[in-house]
């Protein structure tokens, strides 16, 4: 059982008063333990929908989604979801924001809290643990959001364009930070993005989606040196070639 996540012929149809929309059709792919997989697709191709399905926020119309061989029916404790914006609560301190998943999942124990505090300290936010979100920069806030996602110790992270709200300078740095944290903590990650270079700089494998209704159009396994940071990867020879291939696939389809 190497696959931590497996989607088999997943379909999703949205219902509204006037019509129904097929957002996802016969989508199948799987993710291995500790793998970093990016999903890219044309805008409006249902990328976020796929993450919502995996997160257990809504049921698939047809097909199966398996986490470690078990079907996902509701929100699963071992899956962490990171959103586009940090969504920190302004009335809570950084520390209290990080504790939020522990409180919600009713695992707010001494051990878990000290583990969360360790994460805060380890990733350079020690001096800010008693500060409020408004006192932090955008990049730091996004780092807090990742630590919040990690505080309940999930195995699988779902990242929904978590860098898109940042300015380009901060973005490169935060991408590095996030990659570093995810690798050091030994997590599996599924990233959804429309940014091709971001996907290449982070992933072990990239899944290209078709237009709506989304299904897998192509898969690319990337063979960059695993010790390179996302920023360093951008200087590698294969980078621009992969970029061109993906760009053509996204636009000609």
């Amino acid at each position: 059982m190497d696959d931590i996540l497996k989607l088999q012929n997943v379909c999703l149809t949205y219902q509204s008063d006037l019509f129904e929309t097929e957002a996802v059709k016969d989508l199948s792919f799987s993710v291995k333990e500790k793998e970093f997989v990016s999903i890219i697709g044309p805008s409006g191709s249902g990328k976020t929908t796929i993450l919502s399905l995996i997160a257990g926020l809504m049921p698939a119309t047809r097909g199966e989604i398996l986490y470690k061989g078990k079907e996902i029916k509701k929100v699963c404790e071992n899956i962490g979801y990171m959103l586009q914006r940090d969504e920190l609560f302004s009335w809570r301190t950084i520390e209290k924001n990080v504790f939020l998943p522990l409180e919600i999942k009713k695992i707010n124990t001494e051990v878990n809290r000290s583990r969360a505090i360790e994460l805060i300290d380890k990733y350079g936010l020690k001096d800010f643990s008693k500060s409020y979100p408004s006192q932090l920069s955008g990049g730091m806030r996004q780092r807090v959001a990742l630590i919040r996602t990690l505080s309940s110790n999930p195995d699988l992270l779902l990242l929904d364009e978590p860098f898109s709200a940042l300015d380009s300078q901060t973005r490169l740095k935060v991408v590095n930070d996030v990659y570093d944290i995810i690798k050091r903590e030994g997590k599996t990650a599924v990233l959804v993005t429309h940014d091709i270079s971001e996907a290449i700089s982070l992933s072990d494998r990239i899944i290209v989606l078709t237009n709506r209704p989304a299904k897998v159009y192509k898969e690319h396994v990337l063979n960059f040196d695993k010790t390179l940071s996302p920023l360093k990867r951008r200087e590698e020879r294969g980078f621009s070639k992969t970029f061109n291939t993906l760009w053509r696939e996204l636009n000609n389809e």
């Binding site: 926020l57 969504e87 939020l100 409180e103 919600i104």
Partner: peptide, 21 residues
């Protein structure tokens, strides 16, 4: 904010938790 509600849902929050948190 809808996105904050989404965050709470993704954590598996109950309606009561949604209310007071």
């Amino acid at each position: 904010e809808q996105t904050k509600i989404l965050l709470m849902r993704s954590l598996g929050a109950s309606k009561l938790q949604m209310l007071y948190k």
